[in-house]
Design a protein around this nucleic acid. Structure first.
Length: 648
RNA sequence: GCCGAUAUAGCUCAGCUGGUAGAGCGCGUCCUUGGUAAGGACGAGGUCACGGGUUCAAGUCCCGUUAUUGGCUCCA
């Protein structure tokens, strides 16, 4: 007998050789039906593997990420089996489970797999599911594995196996399909009741642009048909929140082929929203001791040679602009920092002047690859809510923490709860990609890690993701369909002060080098507004929304009264529009609801004679009557309540 | 940049196997002057992204370009 310990620390005895499935059966038939994977002493594996010694186990169902992972991983093999039957000679790359579904990279040779082929593949998948093939785990030697896949002419698999360490290699086999795989898997493909291919895309073999581009098929699967239907519906709902769609509907921004791709045009409503966000940040920054500066949109090429940006990005960015007479070279500015360094150098600085915090909503231009452009989240012209803090080395920690405070104020104010923090360090095996000495890198990296610790911020560390001049802390937020975008960023930089020969005079009357912190809480106004649109579905908070109130006269007879009310409200700082179209009231309500105006006020005979307004709240309906002044007070109180926590 | 898809009125889209362009919304005019999520009539709007080709005939088929789009790569 062996002792099995459960997650609640209870212990039960079983025969040696018992499987996860049998343990589940011993607990409840329902659990046995739903269990997908089991972890034995922390190692996730199949539910039909015998457990021979005492162990701590955990059973995973669909609701557990481990359960989903096994399910989707097996689904990837299942799709591969279908592809193998439909496209003889197809070769396989890798096929992992991902956050939402799975993919398989395949090389179908001369054949092109297109969207129109999806139904046939899905049908074949379901045909294989009906066979209820068991998934069988096998262990073989590396040499045998190499032979097996060489015989099968699976060149990608052979490459993968060659890179593995010598020893035992695991294979998983179901029906006629066998794959190199670590597992874990379901024990039968029969569990997969619903399956849908979601996209086809090109993907370079091993992510290497120089190698062959394989065909990547993205798909998702579920243990119940209904779950797939729900998923499809959820995705459709999410698409309705797409900032590109809402941006058009609410007339926030647009693009023009004539102006150029990736160059956003901000419409009046979007501009109003953005300016309000900028004012909001300016107020906070003022409180934190920032000084607003302004710099031009271009700079001499030499400026960026000095900063190091030219060497790194010069070839892959917008090319220099030449003056007609002297042939001088200027670049559209891709960064604000070099300009700010020159502001620092305007006059000698004393240690007493530091930290100096220069802030600018600086518009920058970067040549992004055309395939990468995406709505407002990835553009070629964007405005950073940029600032550079020049400080003494002993001030880094404190300044870094203050920036984190600003970011948390902003995220709270806008109700961004589900963000991820990422510490990006340099790749220790690839140091030549970065500029600056080991010593300064190590100092900067530990400053960031310590700051996160002292704030209790959970951040995951990514090696090799640092900027070329320094490590950074980024804040990422997901969009409507789950894509991650980087918003806020804080970067410690010892290199630019060196390159620009920045100095301050210390207490000791000697010259010292300051340290720079680059930071942008929003990241870029474009991307931030995009994510804000998707998070709110266009229903912006009252303090931020371009139009707070729409006045709807019952008929044209009350237009004059509406104008008088509008003037009253505007005098009390409300943002008001009048819908004086020749339409019935029901129609006006509907249209203004769709425009996501937070409040509507309805005026007709009754209101005019009582000197009141009838109030209606977006999404909620009739709120009764009150005087215009009472309404204005109510709105202003609501705005004050919202902003009291973050604006002093 | 690479692989796949898409491009028809201001917007959302229809247009079957080629036979001289259609709807709804929006817009304009008129009727209606209304009470809490779509009142009615009439009308104007399109070199079917652009350039070639096949054909008696191309929105429709083929090629190229541009833009958009799902990914990959990249992201100061």
């Amino acid at each position: 007998m062996i002792k099995i310990t459960f997650p609640d620390n209870s212990v039960r005895e079983y025969e040696s050789g018992v499987t996860g499935f049998q343990i589940a059966e011993s607990i409840s038939p329902r659990l046995a039906q739903e269990v997908l994977a089991v972890s034995v002493n922390g190692q996730v594996t199949e539910i039909n593997r015998p457990i021979i010694t005492d162990a701590a186990i955990k059973l995973f169902k669909w609701d557990d990420p481990e359960g989903k992972h096994s399910f989707w991983h097996t689904s990837a093999h299942l799709m591969a089996e279908a592809l193998q039957e439909l496209y003889p000679g197809i070769q396989f790359g890798i096929g992992p489970a991902i956050e939402s579904g799975f993919y398989y990279d395949v090389d179908p040779g001369e054949t092109v797999i297109k969207e129109t082929d999806f139904p046939a593949i899905e049908a074949k998948v379901m045909e294989i599911v009906a066979r209820k093939e068991n998934v069988v785990r096998e262990e073989i030697s590396k040499a045998d594995a190499l032979k097996l896949f060489t015989d099968k002419k699976e060149t990608y698999k052979v490459e993968l196996i060659s890179d593995l360490e010598d020893g035992t290699i695991t294979l998983y086999r179901q029906g006629n399909f066998v794959d190199l795989c670590k597992g874990p898997h379901l024990i039968s493909v029969g569990e997969i009741k619903a399956f849908k291919i979601t996209a086809v895309a090109g993907a370079y073999w091993r992510g290497d642009i120089k190698r062959k581009q394989l065909t990547r098929l993205y798909a998702i699967s579920f243990p119940k048909k209904k779950m797939l239907d729900e998923y499809v519906e959820l995705m459709e709902e999410a698409k309705k929140r797409d900032h590109r769609k809402i941006g058009k509907e609410l007339e926030l921004f647009t693009f023009s082929d004539t102006v150029g791709k990736g160059l956003p045009l901000w419409l009046p409503n979007g501009t109003a929203l953005r300016l309000r966000l900028e004012d909001f940040l300016k107020q906070i920054q003022k409180r934190f001791g920032y000084l607003q500066v302004m710099t031009p949109h271009i700079g001499q090429k030499q400026l960026y040679v000095t900063s190091g940006h030219y060497a790194k990005y010069g070839q892959d960015s917008f090319q220099p602009i030449h003056t007609p007479e002297e042939g001088e070279e200027y670049l559209l500015k891709p960064m604000n920092c070099p300009h700010h360094c020159e502001i620092y150098k305007f006059k000698p600085r004393s240690y007493k002047d530091l930290p100096l915090r220069f802030a600018e909503f600086g518009t920058v231009y970067r040549y992004e690859q055309s395939g990468e452009l995406h709505g407002l989240t990835r553009v070629r012209s964007f405005t950073q809510d940029d600032a550079h803090i020049f400080c003494r080395p002993d001030q880094i920690q404190e300044e870094f923490l203050k920036v984190m405070d600003i970011i948390s104020i902003i995220f709270n104010a806008l109700d961004f709860k589900n963000f991820e923090a990422q510490i990006s360090l340099r790749d220790p095996n690839n140091k030549e990609k970065y500029i600056g000495s080991d010593e300064v890198w190590e100092k900067a990296e530990s400053a960031i890690i310590d700051a996160c610790k002292s704030k209790g911020l959970k951040a995951h560390v990514e090696l090799g993701e640092a900027a070329f001049y320094g490590p950074k802390l980024d804040f990422m937020v997901k969009d409507a369909i789950g894509r991650k975008w980087q918003l806020g960023t804080i970067q410690v930089d010892y290199n630019l002060p060196e390159r620009f020969q920045l100095e301050y005079v210390g207490e000791d009357n000697q010259k010292h080098r300051p340290v720079m912190i680059h930071r942008a809480p929003f990241g870029s106004m474009e991307r931030f507004v995009a994510v804000l649109i998707e998070h709110t579905g266009g229903k912006f908070p009252l303090w931020l929304t371009p139009n707070q109130v729409s006045i709807l006269p019952i008929s044209e007879r009350y237009n004059d009264y509406a104008k008088k009310v509008a003037a009253d409200l505007e005098a009390q700082d409300l943002r008001v529009t009048i819908d004086d179209r020749n339409e019935k009231i029901g129609r006006k309500i509907r249209d203004n609801e769709l425009k996501r105006i937070p409040y509507m006020i309805i005026v007709g005979e009754k209101e005019e004679s009582n000197g009141e307004v009838s109030v209606r709240k977006q999404g909620e309906g009739d709120k009764g009557s009150m005087t215009a002044d009472a309404f204005a007070k109510m709105i202003n109180d609501e705005v004050r309540q919202m902003t009291i926590s973050f604006i002093k």
